[in-house]
């Protein structure tokens, strides 16, 4: 009896180990289904997995969960969202690149992936290993200062920065990431020099600007706006080609283009599949995502979360071109 139990439990242990490496083992069976593909679209036959290469609770994760939830209205198979964080988005990318190109494993992507490619990180080639489905959300970056700051307008700030190169500090998350790019790209376009200080999280950056450790605070519209509403932060400039008149708190904030600073950039979040996925499957997924994007349910959520201030949907073809231009831009600023 006791022996039997021991056996049983060691079997459980072995299975739990095996379950962990499931991704690798599934490969051959997946390929089989692909070769047996007929002309009529026989997809999806089983659950679809969307891999978020970032931690749970972040903006990429919540976007994907919202979208996956609504995709359920159009696809009668389950859609599972899993997080594979690590390596600045590369770990999840590698995982999807190792799965079969059958459309059952979708990668959620952000500028981090184009940046990883621009920096030539190993195993990270977005344009080389993946094909676009669609973009879903676009974000705008806003720069501001603490309410106690001596700078009232962007002109005052730039004037000071010109007189004292490198003295002003701007915070952000992740070195060599999107925030770094935006800080440096803005400074270059404005002809000034500012020092970039990377923090571990947006919360730390906020605390640093309110505590006076750094001078300039940058964030996405949504999280920036909460700080403006509470009166802690004064917005100075929006990195966009027109004023955000639809946002109450930011309607009087100038944008970079009107100030003669030719630099606009924001984050974006979309979906991709492994290169070699059949065109019909890609078209099908693109169509579903477009339906979700235009659905009443998503409109309601987007209005509430202000996640669709500028139209975020980009179709397959344009999205692929966007990848290429993003990678080229990042290469220019980040690789010196």
């Amino acid at each position: 009896m006791k022996r039997l139990l021991v056996l049983l439990l060691s079997a459980i242990m072995v299975f739990s180990l095996a379950a962990c490496s499931k991704g690798a083992e599934e490969k051959p069976s997946g390929e089989q289904t692909q070769t047996g593909d007929t002309k009529e679209l026989d997809y999806p036959k089983r659950a679809i997995e969307i891999v978020v290469p970032f931690g749970a609770g972040g903006s990429a994760d919540s976007m994907t969960r919202t979208a996956a939830n609504l995709m359920g209205n159009y696809i009668d198979k389950p859609i599972n969202v899993i997080n594979k964080a690590g390596g600045g988005g590369v770990d999840g990318m590698v995982y999807v690149a190792q799965a079969p190109a059958d459309g059952y494993t979708i990668l959620q992507i952000t500028p981090s992936h184009s940046i990883a490619e621009a920096l030539e990180r190993p195993n990270a080639s977005l344009t080389g290993d993946f094909e676009p489905i669609a973009n879903f959300q676009k974000d705008i970056q806003v720069f501001g200062v603490s309410k106690d700051s001596k700078f009232k307008t962007i002109d005052e700030l730039l004037e000071y920065a010109k007189a004292n190169p490198g003295e002003l500090k701007i915070g952000g998350t992740s070195p060599g990431g999107l925030d770094d790019y935006m800080a440096n790209g803005f400074a270059e376009a404005a002809g000034v020099e500012i020092t970039y200080v990377p923090y571990n999280s947006a919360a730390e950056t906020k605390a640093a600007v309110l505590g006076g450790e750094i001078d300039i605070y940058q964030d996405k519209v949504l999280s920036f706006n909460t700080m403006v509403k509470s009166g802690e932060v004064r917005p100075l400039v929006v990195l966009h080609n027109e004023r955000l008149t639809m946002v109450e708190e930011l309607k009087d904030t100038p944008c970079t283009v009107e100030k003669g600073i030719n630099f606009t950039q924001g984050s974006w979040r979309g979906f991709a599949v492994k290169k070699g996925t059949p065109q019909e499957i890609k078209d099908y997924l693109e169509e579903v995502i477009e339906k979700v994007y235009n659905s009443k349910e998503y409109r309601a959520i987007a209005d509430k979360e202000m996640s669709d201030i500028i139209p975020g949907y980009v179709g397959q073809k344009e999205y692929g071109e966007m990848w290429k231009s993003e990678v080229a831009k990042f290469k220019e600023i980040l690789v010196k």
Binding site: A85, G86, G87, V90, L119, R121, S174, P175, G176, P198
Partner: peptide, 20 residues
């Protein structure tokens, strides 16, 4: 892993799983 200030790889031996 990736150094958090400059983004330089340290002791990663080219292995992406050591990046984080």
């Amino acid at each position: 892993g990736l150094d958090a200030i400059n983004g330089v790889e340290r002791f990663t031996f080219g292995q992406s799983f050591l990046y984080s």
